[in-house]
Design a protein around this nucleic acid. Structure first.
Length: 417
RNA sequence: GCGGGCGUAGCUCAACUGGUUAGAGCGCCUGGUUGUGGUCCAGGAGGUUGCGGGUUCAAGUCCCGUCGCUCGCCCCA
């Protein structure tokens, strides 16, 4: 508590940062609405079990990155490290299965104890979209379309590539996994240290190793496409067809795997090379096995999450909002009048700032810096005549307007916003 | 968790090989007489040089530790 700095990996979001942040979340809310998604806010913490059961005991997220604690009544709780498990829990808690196919979106903070870096924080924020209750590839396609439109509307789709793969159904996956273990066990000595650990913990992760030696071995490694069942193959083909039909460019990336255990079939990542090692900007996939893992009835689902900070870094700087009016009262009498006048203007929807310090010069200066469109000057001279001076700060022209005509004046010259 | 780089006013940076009261620009505040801006001039506030030790006659400048940021690995959004 002695240090006046935020906790490692956390930060205050304000100024330009919050403008970027809000630009992203506003766009998301708008687009998700047009896709018929309903918003959901789930708690920031859950019983630890919610995450432990679903993410897999071997995942790094569970084994070393969760912020878990015991509360005063002895419950083991965890700050959510990801969104999907909480939504799945909410789906079951609230009996949403009764509503048929459910489309949900939301956004908020996540927590992971990792080594911070640019684009990677301990408290970070994600957008999230899920379709629960639909086993059809159409759901996967719709979610990819939503993601693609978001990236387009944010103006960053050009720098981002969609990598698409299929992890298959459980049969495909375990057959492939066995084949991988066979292959790499023969070459275990040649594997990097990290990958030797992966071989026993999560062999599919070897696929996206960046180690040179690993990569040469990977050239002859078994490919998942050869192990997909006909059902899984067909499912993936339909997803690819749909994405192609929508005109979304993508690459079939057989080395794409997901870190979390509950994924099946479709897996995808939208990747940019503009963010260094943290290039994945939006990622997700199908998780047909999740609900059962949590102890519910088997229910199919697809979803994705996107890093708000990462998106916010990529978009163009949003415009600063311009106040409509800067009120400048001169003297005590004027201040009294100004109070109610400002209240009226604000009630009418005009963003109005009031400056009451310093001389005229300083005040106009500040008004100009605030980027206000008009300065509304009210002094003794004006009060004598029941007028106010309205100065157009862009053009420098000004005129006197009767006090009871001010609202009318602005409604004629400004669109209320 | 592992390896590398960095850390001086709100911001961007300066201070020769360690040497007197750590500087500049921007920003902020005030003034240039009585009510007019985005110029100009003058003045001012703001730094225990991230923090803590050590070496030295002397450290922002060297050494160690620590905290934070950053790059790569790892992990992932």
């Amino acid at each position: 508590m002695t240090k006046l700095q935020p906790v490692r990996g956390t930060r205050d979001i304000f100024g330009e940062d919050i403008r970027r942040f809000s630009y992203v979340t506003d766009a998301f809310r708008r687009i998700a609405g047009t896709y018929g998604f309903d918003e959901i806010i789930t708690p920031i913490f859950e019983f630890t079990d919610v995450f432990k059961r679903t993410l897999g005991d071997t995942s790094d997220v569970v084994t070393k990155e969760m912020y878990s604690f015991e509360d005063r009544s002895g419950e083991m709780l965890t700050l959510r490290p990801e969104y999907t498990a909480g939504i799945a829990r909410a789906y079951m808690s609230n009996g949403l299965a009764q509503q048929g196919v459910v489309r949900l979106f939301g956004y908020g903070p996540m927590f992971r104890y990792e080594r911070p870096q640019k684009g990677r924080y301990r408290q970070f924020h994600q957008l999230d979209a899920e379709i629960i209750g639909a086993a059809e590839p159409m759901a996967d396609i719709e979610l990819l379309a939503l993601a693609w439109q978001l990236l387009n509307d944010l103006g960053i789709a050009g720098d981002i590539k969609l990598h698409l793969n299929s992890l298959g159904d459980p049969e495909s996956r375990s057959a492939y996994r066995a084949a991988l273990v066979d292959y790499f066990s023969v070459h275990e000595q040649k594997l990097s240290e990290d990958s030797r650990v992966r071989l026993h913990k999560n062999p599919m992760r070897i696929l996206d190793s960046k180690d040179h030696g690993d990569r040469t071995l990977l050239a002859d490694a078994p490919r998942i496409s050869d192990y997909l069942t006909t059902g899984a193959k067909d499912f993936f083909a339909r997803v690819c067809d749909g994405v192609t039909a929508l005109g979304i460019p993508f690459v079939h990336d057989e080395k794409l795997v997901r870190g979390l255990d509950y994924y099946t079939h479709t897996a995808f990542e939208f990747i940019t090379d503009a963010l260094g090692a943290q290039g994945t900007v939006l990622a997700g996939g199908r998780y047909d096995g999740l609900m059962e893992m949590m102890g519910g009835t088997s229910t199919p689902g697809v979803g994705w999450a996107a890093g708000i900070e990462r998106l916010a870094m990529l978009i163009a700087e949003p415009d600063k909002p311009r106040p409509a009016i800067a009120m400048i009262p001169l003297g005590e009498r004027a201040e009294q009048h100004a109070l109610s006048l400002v209240q009226e203007l604000r009630a009418a929807g005009y963003s109005t700032g009031m400056d009451y310090k310093g001389n005229m010069k300083r005040r106009l200066n500040r008004a100009a810096k605030s980027a206000a469109r008009f300065a509304l000057i009210l002094g003794d001279d004006e009060l004598e005549n029941n007028v106010a001076t309205i100065r157009n700060l862009d053009s420098g022209t000004q005129e006197e307007v009767a006090l009871d005509q001010i609202l009318a004046y602005f409604s004629a010259t400004l669109t209320s916003s």
